[in-house]
Simulated scan of single mutants.
Amino acid sequence: MDRPRRPGASSALRRSAALGSAALDLSAEISRREARRRSAALRARAYLIVQCALAAAVAYSIARYVFDVAVPLFAPVAAMITLGMTHGQRLRRALEITVGVGVGVFVGEIIVHWLGMGWWQVALIVGVSMTIAAALDVGPLLITQAGVQGLIVALLSANSTLAFGRWFEALIGSTAGLAFAAIVPTSTVLRPRARAIALLRDVSDVLTRTAAAMTNKDQAAVEKALVDARATEVAFNGLKGVTADSREILRLTPLSTRRKAAIATVASMLEPLDRAIRNMRVLNRRAAVCL
């Protein structure tokens, strides 16, 4: 004969099944939000990808068809490096990258042209390139970049009969990259206000859902709101980046001066918005603990 079930066994099973179902729903929701986040990140970078491609093509064309460089390698590479690392304070970072690339290529050309190529020349190229870049007070990554560019010149492309040709090529590419960084904004640079509005709507939505979940004692809804609250940090960092980019561009682009007031307003609200987002996350975590 079957043993009689305890009265609480069926309710415990139902609670376990409900918790498992809620966990699966939460996991699916997180996966969907992560997919949307990655898709949004790709769309945000699409213009930068096109920008790098065009800058590389322009740098190649100038080196190949204007200055008759047989194999323009360093021009498109320097243009891509200059553009690819300039999110936030675009022009300052682009100038630093130009200096790092130029120093490395220049030192590599000089040493190979006058001293030839060997193991001690490799050490000398790296040491001198990084020392000069450090003395010019560029960032640590760009100090390393100076040594890397010097090695590329020495090991792959340097020609002792064509002094400074690769350095001039890198200068062409860096100049093209600077031009694109200053003149052609990314797709989101001129829309910091729209990003701020979207972020504020997300904050409002999270707080509204948290309040409703506390009223209804719905722990699953609080957990979902907490996931969304944590996602606002990425959106806030993106807002800071595009605001910094816009302010840099507006310093050099007179045609966009009418946007200065709107961008200044967004910049002035970054600090209080950051505090509001941090407080919102704390509130959500405490709400989850309470339930």
Score class of each variant (00 low, 15 high):
216 N>C: 08
28 A>S: 13
196 A>V: 04
225 A>M: 02
174 S>T: 11
82 T>Y: 12
194 A>E: 15
282 V>K: 14
50 V>Q: 13
166 R>K: 12
248 E>P: 02
182 A>I: 06
68 D>A: 12
185 P>M: 05
234 V>S: 11
149 Q>G: 01
33 R>I: 04
188 T>P: 06
39 S>E: 11
42 L>Y: 00
12 A>I: 08
86 T>S: 13
138 V>Y: 02
18 A>W: 09
21 S>N: 09
249 I>N: 01
179 A>E: 08
271 E>R: 06
28 A>Y: 02
208 T>V: 03
39 S>F: 10
41 A>I: 00
212 A>N: 10
253 T>F: 04
237 N>Y: 04
15 R>G: 10
209 R>F: 04
76 P>Q: 07
114 W>P: 05
82 T>H: 11
253 T>K: 08
91 L>C: 06
264 A>M: 09
135 A>G: 06
75 A>F: 09
171 L>V: 14
269 M>F: 15
201 R>I: 06
60 Y>P: 00
182 A>Y: 02
94 A>T: 14
113 H>A: 13
7 P>Y: 10
106 F>H: 11
272 P>E: 06
286 R>N: 12
18 A>K: 11
155 L>G: 10
132 I>L: 09
134 A>D: 04
126 V>Q: 03
220 A>T: 14
237 N>E: 13
125 I>R: 02
26 L>K: 06
175 T>Q: 09
168 F>C: 12
8 G>F: 00
153 V>C: 07
195 R>V: 11
103 V>Y: 01
270 L>Q: 11
66 V>Q: 08
266 V>S: 04
12 A>W: 01
181 A>M: 07
103 V>E: 04
154 A>N: 02
200 L>E: 13
29 E>Q: 00
114 W>G: 05
8 G>N: 13
10 S>Q: 11
96 E>F: 14
260 K>Y: 14
233 E>A: 09
221 A>W: 06
110 I>A: 09
194 A>K: 12
188 T>R: 15
106 F>L: 15
101 V>W: 11
288 A>T: 01
121 Q>D: 02
155 L>K: 06
